[in-house]
Design a protein around this nucleic acid. Structure first.
Length: 137
DNA sequence: GCCAACGTTGGC
DNA sequence: GCCAACGTTGGC
């Protein structure tokens, strides 16, 4: 099983909304690196759910429940290029783990979240995942 | 509001 | 194929 970090602006789709919905299609990814990460996801992979802009913290855990398929929100002209996955909300962290906490933690300072802040779907290591859970309760 | 990082586009 | 210009994202 692999681990990922997925980002959303809380004003666009907050983690609380995912918990309320149960599951959702993770659509709208239009970046090739992020696209390749979506394609690499397996059912059961766990995702840290990060709130960008307002928030700037990992606030919850989700899991992949359907592997990549054509993103229905992508323009028809783009064909099969853009994909989405389905994710299910698992639970909120007792304590959100902020971006500042990532930068301050030696285990997390090298993570993709810090290294390439614009990437909306990023892989994280098992160690990083465990550390976020430890910090977040 | 500004700026850094990155991706994309288009002229050559 | 290179590179300047531009657009977008996201932190500050």
């Amino acid at each position: 099983m692999r681990h990922w970090l997925i980002k959303s602006e809380p004003t666009a789709y907050a983690f609380s909304q995912l918990l309320a919905d149960g599951r959702t299609a993770w659509t709208g990814i239009r970046n090739n690196t992020a696209r390749l990460n979506l394609l690499a996801m397996s059912v059961g992979d766990t995702c840290l759910f990060y709130h960008s802009n307002e928030g700037k913290a990992v606030v919850g855990i989700a899991e992949v429940v359907r592997t990549a398929y054509r993103d229905p929100t992508a323009p028809e002209a783009d064909g099969e290029r853009w994909v989405c996955v389905d994710v299910r909300g698992l639970q909120a962290l007792a304590t959100p783990v902020s971006l500042a906490a990532f930068k301050a933690d030696p285990l997390l300072a090298k993570s993709e979240l810090v290294r390439q802040s614009r990437l909306s779907v990023a892989p994280i290591t098992t160690e990083e995942f465990a550390q976020v859970l430890a910090l977040g309760g």
